[in-house]
């Protein structure tokens, strides 16, 4: 089980809460202070992306965040439920055709992933039957901070 799990309604105002919680748990897990800004930004990007996907797909389900601490690393998984929509044949194309009025949102989604991959060395983007999953991890320095 994850150390801390969050589920929040897919609304932009809750992304800040996810950032604050992730940074607090990361600090406790022993992630270096200098890296906490990156953790905050990366989890914010992943959550913003998930919120955007849920909103554009008309999904009511929450965005899922799992914060896991183990001996040597701290990891964050952000899961969305948007794959069902993506899996519909032709949905992507139709969406693209209809979204002439909304290209900026698409661009922001892509820029979010670009920021994550530029920031985090250890990142995996995957998808299952439920939705997309972004997994990121950072080394911890617990031993170094113990008295």
């Amino acid at each position: 089980m994850a150390t801390v799990e969050l589920r929040f309604s897919a609304l932009p105002e809750h992304v800040r809460t996810a950032r604050l919680v992730a940074a607090a748990v990361a600090r406790r897990a022993g992630v270096d202070e200098a890296v906490l800004d990156e953790v905050r930004l990366a989890v914010g990007e992943a959550c913003s992306r998930a919120v955007g996907l849920h909103q554009r797909s008309g999904l009511d389900s929450p965005v899922r965040v799992a914060l896991c601490e183990d001996e040597k690393s701290f990891s964050i998984e952000v899961g969305d439920d948007a794959s069902a929509v993506r899996a519909v044949p032709g949905a992507r194309g139709r969406e693209a055709a209809e979204s002439a009025q909304e290209p900026p949102a698409e661009a922001e989604v892509d820029m979010g992933l670009a920021v994550i991959s530029g920031l985090v060395d250890d990142v995996e983007v995957s998808a299952d039957e439920r939705g997309g999953l972004i997994r990121m991890s950072w080394p911890t320095t617990t031993a170094a901070v113990l008295p």
């Binding site: 914010g44 990007e45 913003s48 661009a107 922001e108």
Partner: peptide, 13 residues
């Protein structure tokens, strides 16, 4: 204090 890609998108806009 904090800027993410959404903010970058607005500046580009």
């Amino acid at each position: 204090e904090f800027l993410d890609s959404t903010g970058l998108g607005v500046l580009v806009g």
